[in-house]
Write a protein that binds this DNA or RNA. Structure first.
Lengths: 242, 242
DNA sequence: CGATTAATTGAACCTGGTCAATCGGAGTGG
DNA sequence: CCACTCCGATTGACCAGGTTCAATTAATCG
């Protein structure tokens, strides 16, 4: 039994642009079903020509890319509301893999109808482009992190970004956010070794800035953390939901 | 006197999808003029809400991002055919700056007409999304480079990518390509120090793999270089031109 | 209870950064 | 024409941020 789009728990959140009744109706038509997966389930494979695209409704995941020598780069963390599989949708091939890290519920769209959908609803084409531009923006920031920030700056930056995104989604209570990833995931996202990531996190805890244990990220001093990470505490702007 | 789109030297190149007469006509309408700039001219500023978007017709440039501590990250090199300013066009704010590195000629579009243009021509909306997805794909590769490749692997990867892009544009003669950037540009693109970038380039020259002097990049052994850079020699696929 | 996975910590080591000096070419002014 | 300056490239010496290796703890699970 799939949820009606009008009852979707996401599109009422402040982070997302409100959708008109009409928009909800044709999104409902575009939607072909729902998918529920367990932690560790691969959703899309790098290099694959997937037939489906998704919007994450709940749960979290990871976008990652493997090198031929076995090294892994984590590109970003997947949060509720994220659109997954755009590259397969337009390029016909994913440049990275996507994997669930928690139990996830996803809204499923059919790639074969993507083109006619965009053609019929140009405002949604614009929204897709918007999302893609935001992703590009974020990857640019990540690039600057790996290239120019030191380890402690990078970790601080990452925790701030994650926390703000979680906050915008209303997932933060008492400055705490569920962040169900491993230190290895974060290390591979920042291009740091696991050991050094661990020691850097320990430093942040010592300095009473942030603590991340048992899958819970607690931020004790967001402003100081942001300053250390050479970044701001601006909230993500409202974004469209697919 | 601006060039007619149908006489555009770019859209006949193999790298770009051929455009129908009809497409050429409405691109011609969308185009508001041409811009010619000298090396060093800033085209778009990070954080700005630019009124214009461009397609590079000739010359090369650089996309870059500054951190508040003064560090610079080069995101990518701009080649002929690149669309510039998508972020300003849809997000209303650039996440990076774009600067000319050579004399450049650019095709100019007006942002205020962007939305109505996309609405009127959904196939172009799709192409824009396609370009954005390719950019995202590339930034993902860059992230993997900064995060996972060693210095010599990173430099090799970069030279291979640049060379293949140049080759696809027909800019390569006798395995040589004009690559009018400084070692500092490359260093800031790869997150390496200038000194180490210089020494790494020297190694590649010693090993008879690639030489880059006086703005000319010469590749002596593309396959070996690609292998060292943990990448492939696949040519970029055909792309739309805006 | 053994096996597996994540986190943690110490110690040795090395890739790549920083500092500093030099060189060559291009432009500029006297 | 020469002196001077500026910029990019180059090289050597030293150093440190971060990696690698290795061992331990703790939690989960069949």
């Amino acid at each position: 039994m799939t949820t009606q789009c009008e009852n979707c728990p996401l599109h009422r959140k402040d982070l997302f642009k409100t959708m008109s009744r009409e928009e909800l109706e044709y999104m409902q038509k575009f939607k072909v079903g729902e998918l529920t997966v367990d932690p560790g389930t691969p959703l899309l494979m790098e290099g694959s020509n997937a037939a489906q695209m998704f919007t994450a409704l709940s749960g979290m995941g990871i976008r990652e890319k493997m090198l031929e020598n076995g090294e892994r780069q984590v590109l970003s963390f997947v949060f509720p509301g994220d659109f997954i599989g755009l590259q397969a949708g337009v390029l016909g091939e994913m440049g990275h893999s996507v994997e669930a890290r928690t139990h996830m519920r996803l809204c499923v769209f059919d790639r074969s109808e993507f083109w006619s959908f965009l053609r019929a609803h140009p405002s949604r084409a614009f929204d897709i482009t918007w999302l893609s531009a935001v992703e590009e923006h974020f990857l640019g920031e990540s690039l600057a992190t790996l290239g120019q920030r030191t380890a402690i700056q990078a970790v601080s930056w990452a925790l701030v970004r994650v926390f703000l995104r979680g906050h915008a989604l209303g997932l933060v209570t008492h400055n705490q956010l569920s962040f169900p990833f491993t230190q290895r995931d974060l290390a591979d996202a920042l291009g740091l070794s696991l050991v050094h990531t661990n020691k850097t996190l320990a430093k942040l805890k010592d300095h009473q800035l942030a603590a991340w244990q048992d899958g819970i990220l607690q931020i004790n001093n967001l402003d100081k953390l942001a300053e250390l990470g050479i970044t701001s505490t601006d909230m993500p702007q409202q974004r469209p939901l697919m």
